[in-house]
Nucleic acid binder design. Sequence first.
DNA 1: TGTACATCAGTGAACGCGCGTTCACTGATGTAC
DNA 2: TGTACATCAGTGAACGCGCGTTCACTGATGTAC
Lengths: 194, 194
Amino acid sequence: MARYGKEHREETRKRILESAGRRFKKDGLDGSGIATLMSDAGLTNGAFYAHFSSKDELVEAVLSEQLQAQVADFKALSPGRAGVAELVQMYLSPDHRDHPASGCPSAALLDEITRCSEGARRSYMSGFSEIVDEIAVRLVPADPSSVRGVAASVFAMMVGTVQMSRALTDRKLADELLAASTRHAFELLGLDHA
Amino acid sequence: MARYGKEHREETRKRILESAGRRFKKDGLDGSGIATLMSDAGLTNGAFYAHFSSKDELVEAVLSEQLQAQVADFKALSPGRAGVAELVQMYLSPDHRDHPASGCPSAALLDEITRCSEGARRSYMSGFSEIVDEIAVRLVPADPSSVRGVAASVFAMMVGTVQMSRALTDRKLADELLAASTRHAFELLGLDHA
DNA sequence: TGTACATCAGTGAACGCGCGTTCACTGATGTAC
DNA sequence: TGTACATCAGTGAACGCGCGTTCACTGATGTAC
């Protein structure tokens, strides 16, 4: 192989992180093997340990980068309360439910994260806190901490709703659940219905 | 081994189902091997296929029996709206969070269920519907279908909340999340705070 | 300018291990005579 | 009442397979002379 500049190694690592994010969200943490993850990134299994010391370290790094990306996406929406409404509507859309690989890591992996190492869970917690803070500060810029509880509960409702909607075999029922939770999320957040 | 009556086979099957339920909720579906599951039931790996034709069939049977048990537990609470309040408080208690093995199968396994066979997901859906119906009929006996949406959203919120509370490494934050969701579940359900 | 060498990201075969599954066997009991 | 046999839940070794991980090797390039 070519002798590359320093930035090449970084780029490969980032590529693994991103394709692993998609694979994990599609097939689960336990359901995704190293060989598959590397093949997704256009590499072979052996190269893995040049970038990560173990699968657990990869999981930790992926979780961190997935949540960071989610925060960034959220911040890119309309400013203020309008952006919160957009978030809720996108999150609870049939499109999000039907495409776990490109969706929210919490919705796809939360109960597997529950069983992860403390390091991975710490990665998760810091991302969670940032999202909750961002919702809160958009709702009540003058006193965000007063609505951190609602923000967290609504986020939990959205995560639970998408998971359930994915589990239900009856599409009509699954769609109704998304619609109902959208309504109630707006209600709890004190937002106007679109 | 002894030559037993017909009821013995049934009892053994039930014992496997129950211990597998606990193990699955503790270590996940993928994280629990046949040898471990059988050892939990006081048997050896080989005996498994005398009771189930595959691991997938076991998962389906366990999910069905777990949700059935949950419905039964719910029905055993105080009648009417009081029982719904009890359900919310028990579900969102630190005790439930800290003991996944004896807790709700949705909270422990929902995003793994998402990736299961359609049979297993159908088992899940029928249990889910029964729980939602039971909440709805207790809230508004005269017209349960009018509140099925709230019931479903609140159930989703409870599931998401317990999962998150389990993932968070900061116990104080985890406890605050449970408390906040209890408040907002009561609010959505139109129940008085205890 | 041309050649020998150092670099190092990536290769691919191999490791021991636990997985889901199969199967020949065991052995305590109820039944037949 | 005593013995031979049928039953069948459960045993435990073995199957091929994919897992996470290791490692000797490759080969295209930049650098040294």
